[in-house]
């Protein structure tokens, strides 16, 4: 799918025409440089590799320097492959937020904030015991039973338990586009997107 690499700037809220206060996320989408075009003949599949955000030349390996030199681009920090561009783009082209100028809804993917090792109440929305009295002692947020007894005599695979939470790829689908500011490559979407401010996002049509 056609898309861009972006960065989360932050959240704010605006009043719409109806006078409702709408939460929105500000995203810096692009400029992205086409760093490689993969073809069926050469790579076995078709895709366009985009690069986003400059990084220091000193921090770039020789192999990667050569890769960027082919596209006549400066070294980039983040590289992501997209499909669906077809013949429209050439090596070294710069894509801006204008790509989305006639879209009303966009999908955003990113890495959610890591929460560390969390219990089932936070991780899966279990309700806990819900009572401090009636014989309860230190089990306010316990998961409860893990299953039956002699049958099956084991815990089923995928049983929801405590563990590492967050820090996984999350998609926010069909977010409304509120505004596009082409001069600064800014995109304002309704609602929230995964990850902390300053994290990379993948925006697709």
């Amino acid at each position: 799918m056609q898309g861009l690499i972006a960065k989360k700037v932050g959240m704010t809220s605006v009043f719409n025409e109806e006078g409702k206060n709408v939460p929105c996320t500000v995203i810096e989408a692009g400029p992205c440089v086409v760093t490689q075009i993969k073809t069926k003949e050469k790579d076995g599949y078709e895709a366009v590799q985009l690069g986003f955000e400059d990084k220091r030349e000193k921090r770039t390996s020789k192999a990667m320097k050569g890769h960027f030199a082919k596209a006549a681009a400066t070294p980039k920090r983040k590289l992501v492959e997209f499909t669906g561009f077809g013949e429209d783009v050439k090596l070294g082209d710069v894509l801006n937020v204008d790509l989305f100028h006639d879209d009303n809804w966009l999908d955003v993917r990113g890495i959610s904030k890591g929460k560390g090792f969390q219990g089932v109440v936070k991780r899966y929305g279990f309700r806990g015991v819900g009572d401090a009295t009636h014989g309860q002692h230190n089990r306010d947020r316990a998961p409860g039973s893990l299953g039956a007894s002699s049958y099956p005599s084991r815990v089923f695979k995928g049983m929801r338990m405590a563990g590492r939470t967050g820090g996984v790829k999350v998609a926010a689908i069909n977010l409304r586009v509120l505004k596009i500011i082409p001069e600064e490559n800014l995109l304002i979407l309704k609602g929230s997107v995964p990850g902390p401010n300053g994290s990379y996002l993948i925006i697709t049509k």
């Binding site: 700037v9 932050g10 500011i181 600064e184 800014l186």
Partner: peptide
């Protein structure tokens, strides 16, 4: 947070 100021300006 410079880019947030751009947004503030955009919404006047």
């Amino acid at each position: 947070m410079d880019l947030m100021k751009v947004v503030d300006k955009e919404y006047n």
